[in-house]
Design a binder for these strands. Structure first.
Length: 468
DNA sequence: TCTGGGGTCCTACCTCTT
DNA sequence: TCTGAAGAGGTAGGACCC
């Protein structure tokens, strides 16, 4: 069996940032709120003529997938992440609606404001889902079930949306409980769920062990296939596997985590206000691109979007990653880390183009992405383009004796070559100060008039690659 | 017929530094 | 001066989640 978490007294119920605190003495009361078909419900709220009909959000383009489906559409077998072509075939009468993420963010903010009135210990998982640690609010608000019922009523009253709520001593169990509370859809029709499911501490293990193993967090298709080869079908069967066997199958970290979770022995805290660790933008093109000029422009467009988000968040990044998915769905990434943090679209785009330059585009590019990580607060100080230490740099340095004073190099798929003199951008404080003011002006225009209001001159008239 | 977008975390491997 | 070990930092890919 597993060792249970150690016990301490009078420990705050919430964890801010990444700091993890010991498990509390008494069982916690975790509430998981999960909106029912959130994107669809928002669309129906804004357009009541959609009510009761099979509605699919997303999947508008030829290469799109379903972002959300109404329960009426799910009765036809339509599921989220399904290719739109499949969804259309399964349910030809479905109404397809383009996703409006800005609108969903608005409604989500109202939802989270309601949740925040119950307890400050709210961990937003996504736009439509959150965990609340209500352990400290039980006496004040009259028990977890009462809190769950009041939340459902309030959300329905204020937002006109329905949600399912699970209550349990742990996040994982609360999540499974809210799942059990949801409506279901089958070819026989739509069946309303109980709305609220409460799992008491003494029945938690039995509840957990009855679930299929793929219901466990951390088990996706690859791990599921491995477990199924060992005949593991339920969380109960997973729990009976020796921890060492599990570690041997899926690795030390995941193996230990799954073993603890399967015995309801992992006390994962409700984390409030998690700081972002990366920001990215990516786009699947309607047609595959092979033109370096077109893809260079796309890098600039994506970098511009990422830079805007960085500056709005008051962040800068040291690492830039370019993601490329080829026509055959093979996906590669190329990244480069700079000594100084960056938040300028032109700098990000230059690094991105440099990385793209090392890739053979002949197979055709289906998707292009630009992402940043190693984020720091406070914006950037100064930047120059030879500041990167990409793979080409290091490998070239290693082959040439390790000098850091070499010219700018880049990897070209095994054929590294010395580039021309490094290109320098003006530093902040000279021309860079003007650039910072220009960036601030751009950010303000976008805040007031939307992202499409202004952009790099080279993208004028082609804000995005043509969609079929 | 195909297979999005935005994230996090983990692992393996490589290089550099001490 | 050379060598090996260990740790840090970086890169790339995979798995997973919503």
């Amino acid at each position: 069996m597993v060792e249970r978490g150690t016990v301490s007294s009078d420990i705050p119920d919430i964890v801010a940032g990444a700091a993890v605190q010991p498990a509390p003495a008494r069982p916690r009361s975790i509430v998981h709120v999960d909106m029912d078909a959130f994107f669809v419900a928002v669309e129906v709220g804004d357009d009541p003529s959609l009510r009761g009909r099979p509605v699919v959000v997303g999947g508008a383009g030829r290469r799109g997938v379903v972002a959300a489906a109404s329960y009426q559409a799910r009765a036809f077998g339509v599921r989220s992440a399904m290719p739109s072509a499949t969804a259309r075939r399964l349910c030809p009468e479905a109404v397809f609606v383009a996703a409006r993420h800005a609108r969903y963010r608005e409604v989500s903010a109202e939802l989270h404001a309601i949740l925040g009135e119950v307890t400050p210990a709210v961990e937003g998982v996504s736009l439509d889902e959150a965990f609340l640690d209500v352990t400290g609010a039980l006496r004040r608000l009259g028990g977890a079930r009462s809190i769950a019922a009041a939340l459902r009523e309030r959300i329905h009253g204020d937002l006109g949306l329905s949600c399912s709520v699970g209550v349990a001593p742990r996040k994982l169990t609360a999540k499974l409980a809210s799942e059990a509370a949801k409506p279901t859809a089958s070819s026989q029709g739509v069946h309303p769920g109980p709305g609220i499911v409460v799992v008491d501490p003494h029945e938690e293990l039995a509840f957990l062990h009855a679930h299929p193993v793929e219901a466990m967090w951390g088990i996706g298709s690859a791990t599921l296939a491995r477990l199924q080869r060992r005949g593991v079908r339920t969380i109960g069967e997973l729990a009976r596997l020796p921890e060492a066997a599990l570690v041997g199958m899926v690795g030390a970290s995941l193996g230990r985590t799954l073993h603890a979770r399967s015995w309801a022995a992992s006390d994962e805290p409700v984390v409030v206000g998690r700081a972002p660790k990366s920001i990215s933008h990516e786009e699947t093109f309607a047609v595959d691109h092979r033109s370096r000029a077109v893809l260079d422009r796309e890098v600039l467009r994506l970098a511009d979007a990422v830079a805007g988000r960085l500056r709005r968040a008051g962040l800068a990044a040291r690492t830039l990653q370019v993601k490329i998915r080829f026509a055959d769905f093979r996906t590669i990434t190329r990244s480069s880390t700079c000594r100084q943090p960056m938040d300028d679209a032109r700098v990000l785009a230059s690094v991105g183009r440099e990385l793209l330059g090392s890739v053979d585009l002949a197979p055709g590019v289906r998707l292009l992405g630009v992402g940043v990580s190693r984020l720091s607060a406070g914006g950037c100080t100064q930047l120059c383009l030879d500041d990167t230490t990409g793979p080409g740099d290091r490998r070239a340095r290693a082959r040439s004796g390790g000098s850091k004073a070499m010219g700018h190099r880049r990897s070209t798929g095994g054929d590294d070559r010395v580039e021309q003199e490094p290109t320098f951008l003006p530093e902040r404080g000279s021309g860079g100060a003007d650039r910072a003011r220009a960036d601030a002006a751009v950010d303000e225009l976008r805040r007031r008039f939307g992202d499409a209001a202004i952009g790099p001159a080279s993208l004028v008239g082609r804000r995005r690659a043509p969609r079929r």
